[in-house]
């Protein structure tokens, strides 16, 4: 609301006629509606169109960059025949289980560690060290310990998703305004009330940053985890299709992963909007 009204009358009637009054002609109305869409999605549409054209016209090698219609056809075939559904299910199960464990352990642990300074200070160097150790580098260790089955795959994803979430939660708790805590104390609030009514709600935005980072990490690690010793999963399909030179299928699996990542992020953003209505400027 605020921005348009600040614009000069000329700019308003020129750019956004559809919002303020009834359109007199269809042309500016379409331009007004299309403008925001073009600025937001124009580049991605342009990229996809360029891909399709350059592959069709042979500007790039179509065996390595197949046209989009082939990729989408491969994706559709995989889903409608049910062949890819098994892979999606097992992949979602692996990342889902790892992500859920990271949430179940990371958030409570982070809330606890952020509250108690001594614990946080004692554990921080260790955490920083673990965080800087790539989960992928540790994957062989996990395989040695847990075998080549599901356990090591889930664990490596869990390991990689735990730290962003844990550190974001600790950060959120540490950033809580001590002036608000002091205010609550003057009304007789004890430690439990302060935690429930101040620390927890104040940490929610930071926790969501961690959740979104962790969800992305869970899907990234999935590929690596499924490249070794797997015979199912989207990550396995990417590798397998490449070995068998089914390039459209390979891209279809990659596209599927990207879509899953976008969906996970969208769900979390929606949840955050619902839970943190207070932190939005125009809420």
């Amino acid at each position: 609301m605020s921005f348009e009204t600040l614009n000069s009358p000329l700019a308003t009637s020129f750019d956004l006629p559809g919002r303020n009054r009834r359109p007199s002609t269809l042309g500016p109305w379409i331009a007004g509606r299309l403008g925001p869409l073009v600025s937001r999605y124009g580049l991605i549409v342009g990229f996809l169109v360029l891909w399709q054209i350059s592959s069709k016209l042979g500007w790039v090698n179509p065996t390595i960059f197949p046209p989009l219609d082939l990729i989408i056809a491969a994706l559709w075939e995989g889903i409608s025949s049910g062949a890819l559904l098994d892979d999606i299910a097992i992949s979602l199960q692996r990342s889902g289980l790892a992500f859920a464990s990271a949430v179940a352990i990371g958030i409570p642990l982070g809330l606890f560690m952020g509250q108690i300074r001594a614990v946080e200070q004692a554990l921080d160097p260790l955490l920083q060290f673990f965080r800087q150790t790539s989960a992928l580098a540790l994957y062989p260790v996990f395989i040695l310990l847990l075998g080549l089955g599901e356990a090591s795959k889930v664990f490596v994803i869990f390991w990689a998703t735990l730290f962003p979430l844990l550190l974001a939660t600790i950060g959120g708790v540490k950033e809580v305004d001590t002036k608000l805590i002091e205010m609550a104390r003057t009304y007789g609030a004890g430690p439990v009330t302060i935690f429930r009514r101040i620390v927890l709600p104040a940490s929610v935005p930071a926790i969501f940053v961690g959740l979104r980072l962790s969800a992305t990490t869970a899907l990234l690690l999935l590929i690596a985890a499924e490249m070794i010793g797997a015979n199912k999963g989207i990550g396995f399909q990417v590798m397998n299709a490449q070995y068998n030179f089914q390039v459209p299928l390979m891209f279809a699996a990659i596209l599927l992963l990207a879509l899953l990542g976008l969906a996970a992020n969208a769900v979390l953003v929606l949840l955050q909007r619902k839970l943190c209505r207070w932190s939005q400027i125009n809420a």
Binding site: K179, L180, E182, M183, R185, T186, Y187, G188, R197, I198, P201, A202, V204, C276, W278, S279
Partner: peptide, 19 residues
């Protein structure tokens, strides 16, 4: 320490942003 027969108004309003 603090007591409920006293209430404090600070220089900053110190409102809870989520309420």
């Amino acid at each position: 320490g603090v007591g409920t027969e006293r209430a404090v108004i600070f220089q900053e309003p110190r409102l809870l942003p989520w309420l």
